[in-house]
Design a protein around this nucleic acid. Structure first.
Lengths: 287, 287
DNA sequence: GTCCTGTCATACCCGGTGGGTATCACCGAA
DNA sequence: TTCGGTGATACCCACCGGGTATGACAGGAC
């Protein structure tokens, strides 16, 4: 009566995202008519109209928008429950609370911090095994939400800590990474005003949650691409100080005096109750 | 394959909480054998053992503990999705994002703040209708989690903000509420040391998440009971300053100089995207 | 030892329903 | 007008979720 089956949620999410019953049914691996019927049943059960069927395709009603957001969270929670339960039992540890932890990190970010954290935690008396899960820009949130990870290193202001518990670990400044030969590369320090709107060095654009922000710069989706484009003199980037680790010889890093500081946090699902996780967080905050 | 049906979760939660198939089946309104079979299917699907069936009853394995916690969150998310969707469509507003907001407050707490908030918000140009949902001690978190409320006023350190977004609204001191005739009632200020372990005035005990902390004081579960017991000289209480509103003539309030301050926050589900909610929060933070 | 009791598991049956195929009703474009 | 493409309807079947009856097994009383 007052609860939704995850099957209903899956179906609705597919239709709400595709805005097309046929494509949604294909994505779900089923025929279109049962999908239509399932959505109608869902609407009747909720007593609410979710989709507006107009002449050509469908569009969401207000209630549909709400269910799209809330349902995403509910589905993530359900798959997270399945994944974490499987991991808890699969490791073979009898008590189940001392198993492997999956730590999501943005690939190549905070490398030094990560190494120190792993070393310090490994020295703890009853440390769990830590699996490091490298992920792309801003994917850590998704990984925590759907249970592929148990804990993550996040970087404000790039990530959002909404919905997670967190502890602050490290604050660092940012540097401008320029082609070694560029005139600005000779400067000791730079400001944001110095590096914005340079016609020959537009800022590279990173995908945020799958989409690229608008702008003149080239679209990149990993450090190697970015590094190459900078070395070729096609773009520049503003990155946290600790990312100096992966710079090339053709790069020059210049500190930015007025860039917003980047704060690294360790974050985990708010309802988490694992002993191993508590130990890792204690270790991290004592670094 | 990698997602759990809410039916399976409901069944497992019942068994995990009762630790008894028969009672769990009764609670679920079904017979015991299908429940047994459903749990076995769930264990097979997940590939992990959740319950340890020993001679007399059952107990949870480690993986079962994990699923108990994660499943609670997932079930809450699913029922929250249903409730919020129903409310979004039921109000009859066509755009659905400008509907009624349910605000959970601890009954009789922050009365003045609440009045100011409601007045200020009602004066906004396109204010949604606010339904005030009074709830018992620490119930606001549950209300937000399972969708009965959209936003809440919470009081640190009594509530936990884990898993919610929040903004600080107000910090206040605490007062000791004593029977008017008591010797300590003549003092201008008191300290925690003054009022702890007074044999004739043991501190009243409030339920926290359904259970009472241990101690010598009487158990109370609403302000009226507490007020009466204080007036009768049987107990005393330490409460935030703003709760002076409901004191009786037979009560005397004395400021406590070293009690931890109580901070009132406005809190809401982290993934919330409602325009009406954003307006209410903006109003609250500008008070 | 033999009951008896209480637990969860098994065996078997049935009805509801989720899913499939075929088709319809409708609308816009050519 | 016809045609392509949309979602809805009609109808059927198989699966499975749920029920009842019963079994297997362990403890406790005696």
């Amino acid at each position: 009566m007052d609860t939704l089956e995850t099957r209903e949620l899956r179906y609705f999410m597919a239709v709400a995202e595709e805005l097309h019953f046929g494509r949604a049914a294909e994505r779900l691996g089923m025929a279109q008519p049962p999908l239509s019927r399932a959505i109608q049943q869902l609407e009747r059960r909720l007593g609410v109209s979710l989709l507006q069927r107009n002449r050509r395709g469908v569009c969401l009603t207000g209630a549909g928008e709400v269910l799209l957001h809330e349902g995403r969270a509910a589905l993530d929670a359900a798959t997270a429950a399945a994944r974490r339960t499987r991991r808890a039992g699969g490791a073979g540890t009898p008590d189940g609370l001392r198993n492997r932890l999956v730590l999501a990190v943005k690939a190549a970010a905070s490398h030094e911090l990560l190494r120190k954290l792993l070393d310090a935690y490994a020295a703890e008396p009853d440390a769990a095994e830590i699996e490091v899960l490298p992920c792309g820009s801003c994917e850590q949130e998704e990984m925590l939400r759907d249970g592929r990870a148990d804990v993550a290193l996040m970087h404000m202001p790039y990530n959002s800590l909404a919905g997670f518990d967190s502890e602050e670990l490290l604050t660092e400044g940012q540097i401008a990474v320029l082609p070694a030969g560029h005139p600005l590369a000779a400067r000791r320090t730079l400001t944001l005003a110095d590096v914005s709107d340079i016609p020959d060095l537009p800022l590279a654009r990173w995908p945020r949650h799958g989409t690229y922000p608008p702008g003149p710069g080239p679209e990149v989706h990993d450090q190697t691409q970015l590094a190459q484009l900078i070395a070729l003199g096609r773009t520049m980037a503003i990155i946290p100080d600790s990312a100096r680790a992966w710079l090339w010889a053709e790069h020059t890093a210049v500190p930015l005096t007025d860039a917003p500081p980047v704060v690294t946090y360790v974050a985990w699902p708010a309802h988490s109750r694992s002993l191993a996780l508590a130990g890792l967080i204690r270790t991290a905050t004592q670094l």
